[in-house]
Amino acid sequence: MAGTNRITLIDDLTIYHAEAQKQLLLDALAAPGAVEADLSQAGEIDTAGLQLLILAKREALRQGKDFHIVAHSPAVRQTIDFCNLTAFFGDPVVIPAHESP
């Protein structure tokens, strides 16, 4: 797809990296085109990280841009699921067979 910025968050989505990751996400959103966040490397996610993802999604919606999370790591997926935010992010999520009901 043309004009898609793909950013990969390598560190855990925790408060320790929140400041840096906020900047990363906002910079990506400031550039033209849709944003794809690759979270496959994010081993952990806490409230701060979740908040950042919500912020990024909200910001993207405000600007009328696409913000997608691709390659959810299991932790990210579980947390988004737990908080019932799957529909809010609206990203396709891969459910591993052994976890599906």
């Binding site: 929140a18 400041e19 979740l50 908040q51 919500i54 912020l55 910001e59």
Partner: peptide, 14 residues
């Protein structure tokens, strides 16, 4: 949660 510029990633807004 405030707008992106004012949002402090180390505060909790949830």
């Amino acid at each position: 949660m405030p707008a992106a510029a004012e949002m402090d990633p180390e505060s909790c807004y949830l």
